[in-house]
Simulated assay, not measured.
Amino acid sequence: MEQLSLELETILEVVRVRQEVQERPIKYKTGMISSTYAGEFGIREIGDEASEVVLVVVLNTKNEINAIHRTFAGSLNTSVAHPREIFRTAILNNGARVMLYHNHPSGNTEPSNADLSFTRRIIDAGELLGIEVVDHIIVTGTEYYSLREANII
């Protein structure tokens, strides 16, 4: 009779997730006080990037910034970010709301169908988690387009 051999493996449990906190070179007001301020914020942060970047700004219940996180950098004209990356940042930073940003290196702020589809997917995921998506702002080096201002979300 053949004897079964079972190897014992160690199973590790993650007991703490640690984030690295970095001082930002640019100082901002603590709260997102208007769409204009939010748009200018995005232009300063990622407007001049050569490839698409998704930026998540995590807000508390008073719309004060808890964290700013570059979630994904893509290619010249695409960026594929998954809801788990977006909301991981919000959850780890005690966020009540998020603002999404991404840039269009082409210089055209008009949202594509992929941008609209991505936004809807993130809003739906946020509703499940109880984290509001305040706005999704598309930026270039000099302009911004707020999906909230355009009544798209």
Rank of each mutant, 00 (worst) to 15 (best):
K27D: 03
G31W: 01
M99T: 14
G141V: 01
H136C: 10
E85H: 13
T119E: 03
S35R: 06
M32I: 07
L128E: 15
M99N: 05
N63P: 10
E9H: 08
V14D: 11
M32R: 01
L76S: 07
N77M: 05
E143N: 12
T89L: 12
L6K: 06
E13G: 13
T119R: 08
A150P: 04
I43T: 12
R24S: 11
I46P: 05
L147A: 11
L92G: 08
Q19A: 08
E64P: 03
A50N: 08
E127P: 10
L55C: 09
E2Y: 10
M1Y: 12
Y101Q: 03
T71F: 01
T30M: 10
E127V: 04
I152Y: 07
L55A: 02
S34A: 15
I153P: 01
I65C: 00
V58R: 00
Q3V: 15
L129R: 09
L12Q: 11
N60S: 14
F72C: 10
N108C: 06
E23D: 12
A73R: 00
G39I: 01
T78I: 14
A114S: 13
V56T: 01
D115F: 15
I65L: 00
A67D: 11
A150E: 14
V80K: 07
N113W: 05
N151W: 15
G74P: 06
V17M: 11
G31D: 15
T119S: 08
E127Q: 15
L8N: 09
E7T: 06
V58T: 00
N66F: 00
S34C: 12
F72K: 10
E23G: 09
E52Y: 02
M1R: 06
V54A: 12
R16D: 15
V15N: 04
S51G: 04
I137R: 03
N63D: 12
H82N: 10
Y101E: 02
L92F: 05
V139W: 03
Y144M: 03
L129T: 05
M1V: 08
Q22I: 13
R148E: 00
V15S: 07
I138V: 02
L129E: 04
L100W: 02
E64M: 14
F72R: 06
I91N: 01
T30F: 03
Y28D: 11
I33H: 06
S106M: 14
T78L: 08
T30L: 13
K62F: 04
F87G: 01
A73V: 05
F87C: 07
S34F: 08
Q3D: 05
N103S: 00
E132S: 05
S75N: 13
L55D: 03
G39P: 11
L59T: 02
M1G: 08
T10D: 11
V139C: 09
V15E: 12
N63C: 04
